[in-house]
Nucleic acid binder design. Structure first.
Lengths: 226, 226
DNA sequence: CGACCAATTGATTGTTATCAAGGGATGTGG
DNA sequence: CCACATCCCTTGATAACAATCAATTGGTCG
């Protein structure tokens, strides 16, 4: 049985809406699981009866076109939840970018529990509304921004989202390589690489290692992001 | 006071989850309003304390970049709801594409009512999850598809979504002009027009008037959509 | 009929994808 | 500890696609 008391996302995940007895019942339904980097938890089109809370690590949501090109349509961070409650098949693949830890529920049990606990459902609704806003904002980036605007916007958003986890004062470590960045931004790996090189040449960022980023001139970056 | 009994979206909107007394109380909170084509109901950044159900017509959700370029991030059809429950400001503008009719609620009252009626909240959650799936699927189109694939995908989706309203056997009437299509697909008006012309030249569609579309060869269209 | 607006068409430019090759880090086995 | 292989990233040359700039057409309404 999971120990929710020591859970690092206890205060932020949807379970935060549950108290003593409810939490005990909820945690009895849970199965804790490690997901190694690169492993796919859910395949698209599959009717996976599974809901999960992310405890640690980062996962990606991927939609693939018929010809194999991929678009990452969402990133899942600790305290976010994964899966499609209420019985629809998953329209996208869920793959771990780093080693991850999740807390898994059987979907039927989860649905029943949610129906009986309006507070939980309320949290779920709020999170889904937030995700929808984020997805829609990302549509502006994909549809209307140039390559340099995309890369600048991306680095700013990653800086914000990773700051909460990393707590390094200066920079942050991306949980993925160049191809993944390209798949997030709707670009090729070459274009992505060129834009990063240019940002470094202009002194706006430093790239001390493959995945590390230090933003030197945040104002310039925000101007570039459009 | 609104008359929900004769409401054309009675069976499909979120209110479908309410019965006799609940519906009566809910409808006392509602204000029926006409929105003429082109009129903006909600501006981005504004903290509009407003939730609405669409009864008739079509509206668009728009995000604008700093330089004025626009991306349509969602279309709102009858029975869909508009607004951001639970107190966040709207991240996008909501503008009517056609003359529309909506059923408006004060957000605070709506939130309180939703909190007290789990069935309503459940419907809201399901709809929001569906919208999120749709938005994410659209991200593949924006990030990875070519102009011709975008236009073909668009016509197919419009065919599906409008068929439910129109019920014309052969074709359908788009509720918007070329610039709006371009803003949905992340293209310019010229590119959009050229792709439509090419589809007509290839005999795949007919464009009997500015906004009318008849799909002749649906298979070819699906092949094009990628 | 003429004015106006939306859509189309044409010519050209610019950006990004594609194709191709060259670094540079990491890890393994000799 | 070094040679080598591998993987990922970068860089370069070229091509394709869509954006932009610029007219023109066509449909609608006073």
């Amino acid at each position: 049985m999971s120990n929710c008391q020591s859970c690092p996302v206890r205060g932020r995940a949807i379970c935060a809406s549950l108290d003593g007895d409810e939490l005990a019942a909820f945690s009895r339904m849970a199965r804790h699981q490690r997901v190694p980097a690169g492993h796919t938890l859910i395949w698209e089109g599959e009717d996976v009866p599974l809901i999960a809370n992310v405890i640690g690590g980062v996962l990606k949501l991927v939609v693939a076109a018929a010809d194999g090109r991929e678009q990452i349509v969402g990133l899942v961070f600790p305290s976010d939840f994964i899966g499609r409650p209420f019985g629809k098949e998953s329209p996208y693949r869920v793959t771990a970018l780093t080693d991850a830890e999740v807390c898994i529920y059987n979907r039927n049990s989860f649905d029943a529990f949610a129906a009986a606990h309006p507070h939980l459902q309320h949290k779920l609704l709020r999170r889904t509304l937030d995700e929808l806003d984020r997805a829609r904002y990302w549509m502006l980036l994909l549809g209307r921004k140039s390559a340099s605007q995309k890369v600048a916007s991306f680095l700013l958003e990653m800086s914000d989202r990773l700051a909460r986890l990393d707590r390094k004062e200066a920079g942050f470590e991306l949980p993925f390589g160049r191809q993944q960045i390209a798949d997030i931004l709707g670009l090729t790996i070459e274009t992505t690489s060129r834009q990063l090189t240019r940002l470094r040449a202009d002194g706006i960022v430093d790239l001390p290692s493959r995945r590390a980023v230090v933003i030197h001139d945040r104002d310039a970056m925000e101007r570039m992001a459009g």
